[in-house]
Amino acid sequence: MPGNEKSRAKTEQAKGKAKEAAGRAVGNERMTAEGRAERSKGDARQAKEKGKDAFRH
Rank of each mutant, 00 (worst) to 15 (best):
M1W: 14
M1R: 15
G3I: 09
G3T: 13
G3Y: 12
N4T: 15
N4K: 08
N4E: 14
E5C: 08
K6R: 09
K6N: 11
K6E: 12
K6W: 08
S7Y: 09
S7R: 14
R8Q: 10
R8S: 10
K10W: 06
T11Y: 05
T11L: 13
E12P: 02
E12V: 04
E12N: 08
E12M: 13
Q13W: 07
A14F: 03
A14N: 05
A14L: 06
A14I: 07
K15T: 09
G16T: 09
G16I: 01
K17C: 00
K19F: 01
K19P: 00
E20K: 14
A21R: 08
A21C: 01
A21D: 14
A22H: 07
A22R: 13
G23Y: 08
G23R: 04
G23Q: 03
R24H: 02
R24S: 06
A25F: 01
A25S: 12
V26D: 10
V26I: 15
V26F: 05
V26L: 08
G27F: 05
N28Q: 04
N28I: 01
N28G: 03
E29Y: 04
E29S: 14
R30W: 03
R30D: 08
M31A: 12
T32P: 02
T32V: 05
T32G: 04
T32K: 12
T32C: 02
A33N: 08
A33C: 01
E34S: 07
E34Q: 12
E34R: 03
E34W: 02
G35F: 04
G35L: 05
R36Q: 12
R36F: 04
A37I: 06
A37S: 11
A37T: 12
E38I: 06
E38G: 01
E38F: 00
R39M: 10
R39C: 01
R39K: 15
S40C: 01
S40K: 14
K41L: 10
G42N: 10
A44R: 14
R45M: 10
R45H: 11
Q46R: 11
Q46G: 00
A47I: 02
A47G: 12
A47N: 12
A47S: 13
A47E: 15
K48S: 08
K48C: 00
E49N: 07
E49F: 03
E49K: 04
K50V: 05
K50G: 00
K50Q: 06
G51E: 09
K52P: 00
D53M: 10
D53S: 09
D53R: 07
A54M: 10
F55A: 12
R56N: 09
R56W: 06
R56Y: 02
R56E: 14
